[in-house]
């Protein structure tokens, strides 16, 4: 293994906020909540997070690459509760809700679609 020598360049971050974007804070709290309530196994999540962190996810959406890996690990960790196709449908619902919401208003999910 080669030892990186760029550590000094990344350590001066004392003033950075803990979360780069609100979705990061929510993802972090979701994981903490699921572990605290026994839904998620901490060691299993750590293994998945380790795997995702080695995949070099790109930073995006004003967030950090670390939390992209974090969210991906979380999606994998709860796959038995919420399979990928269920998550994809929910994501589509959120996109549709955003498009139907006037700019500046809070975006809410319309559960009526489930009754259709």
């Amino acid at each position: 293994m080669t030892v990186p020598d760029d550590l000094a360049s990344i350590r001066s971050d004392d003033d950075e906020p803990a979360f780069a974007a609100p979705w990061e804070a929510t993802a972090f709290a979701l994981k903490a909540h699921l572990v605290a309530t026994g839904v998620l196994d901490a060691a299993a999540f750590a293994t998945l997070l380790g795997e995702e962190m080695r995949k070099d996810h790109a930073a995006q959406d004003e967030g950090t690459a670390y939390f992209v890996a974090y969210v991906t690990a979380l999606e994998r960790a709860i796959a038995t509760i919420a399979p990928p196709e269920r998550l994809a449908a929910e994501q589509a619902a959120w996109r549709a809700a955003a498009e139907a919401t006037p700019h500046g208003a809070p975006i809410v999910l319309d559960r009526c679609r489930d009754k259709a």
């Binding site: 994501q91 619902a93 959120w94 996109r95 955003a98």
Partner: peptide
Amino acid sequence: DHSHLSDMDVRVRALQSVLEEK
């Protein structure tokens, strides 16, 4: 004139709302 959610925002909202619903 409509709202926009970033991809990561959508993924986290979906995780949260599915888990809440269940």
